[in-house]
């Protein structure tokens, strides 16, 4: 089966210097592809580098090394303004905090139309306004909202404005960095349903970054688990949940509280001990089953494989 790759990330690294000789390796060599029309979930704890990865992919940060290819073109290479503009239009981002990601001094109309202006997608003011009103409709707000300011909206509504802004330039690929973690449960479901509907209607591809595993499992086709700047496991979401291989993934899965008291009473939490790994060689990303990748040494690889076969 050959699926069209939208994004190819190869050995991407992003290091930050933290004074003197200290270097923080926020993202330390991750490799994955995202296919057209799918949702790729990236999970991990705070500090695992998942947000940095997202921001580096969209070039909010310059990569330390490695490669990001979008539709076959290098994202991080030197680019003319024109090329950059073209690229920016194809890839958009939805941010975590709906309170700080919208300019409080701009009306909703101007916030959403900013991309339209930059890319000159509207011929005149009337068309610009019409496009914004359409977008508001798409995300479940109404056109009377266009003249208001962000503070007049609730968190869920603001996140909808953020989504409308991202959609304004008709992107193919959207990076959603914890788009629902700041929202109430009942509102989370509304926003997730909206994202799913938009994906269906517009053929969008998502990179969905979150720490809420049950939501990620629900929305994603494939999931990558990050730990300390590395991708430790990558698989189809069902496969990852049913047959987690890496001890960190197992520990993460065992820690999710489920809304089911009987299950919770019996739940056994697995603790992760990062020192228990085989250190005889540098771990590598290996394919343990078709499309199921794990970061491990060759010795661990054999061991994991046996465990999988036993199941």
């Amino acid at each position: 089966m050959t699926r069209e790759k939208v994004l190819e990330v190869k050995d991407l690294k992003k290091h930050f210097s933290a004074g003197k000789d200290k270097v923080i390796k926020a993202v330390d060599g991750i490799t994955f592809d995202i296919y057209k029309g799918e949702t790729f979930g990236l999970v991990g704890e705070s500090g695992s580098g998942k947000s940095t990865a997202g921001r580096t992919i969209i070039r909010l940060y310059d990569a330390t090394s490695g490669e990001v290819k979008f539709n076959g073109e290098d994202v991080h290479g030197r680019k003319s303004r024109d090329q950059l503009r073209k690229f920016n239009r194809k890839m958009q981002m939805i941010f975590q905090d709906p309170h700080s990601s919208l300019n409080p001094r701009m009306t909703v109309l101007d916030i959403i139309a900013e991309g339209i202006d930059v890319h000159k997608l509207a011929k005149n003011d009337a068309e610009r306004k019409k496009r914004v009103e359409e977008l508001l409709e798409v995300v479940g707000l109404n056109k009377e909202h266009a003249t208001r300011f962000p503070h007049e909206f609730s968190g869920g509504q603001r996140q909808r404005i953020g989504i409308a802004r991202a959609l304004a330039v008709e992107p193919e690929f959207i990076i959603a960095d914890e788009p629902i973690s700041a929202l109430d449960v009942s509102i989370q479901a509304q926003v997730v349903n909206l994202l799913k509907r938009l994906q269906r209607d517009r053929g969008l591809t998502y990179l969905f970054i979150a720490h809420d595993l049950s939501m990620v499992k629900y929305i994603s086709d494939r999931i990558g688990v990050m730990y300390m700047g590395h991708l430790v496991e990558l698989a189809d979401s069902d496969e990852l949940y049913e047959n987690p291989v890496h001890p960190y993934t197992k520990s993460l899965l065992s820690a999710i509280p489920l809304p089911d008291p009987r299950y919770e009473r019996e739940r056994v939490r697995i603790a992760y001990d990062p020192t228990a790994h085989d250190t005889s060689e540098e771990p590598e990303f290996r394919e343990i089953r078709p499309n199921h990748w794990v970061r491990c040494t060759s010795k661990e690889f054999e061991q994991y494989k046996k465990e999988l076969e036993k199941k």
Binding site: S186, M215, K217, L258, P259
Partner: peptide, 23 residues
Amino acid sequence: WGLLGSMPTPDSTDEELYAIPGT
């Protein structure tokens, strides 16, 4: 019902989440 329905479980599949409309 709405609160419980709006949370996905590992078993939820492709169907829409049951969202409570409005605020």
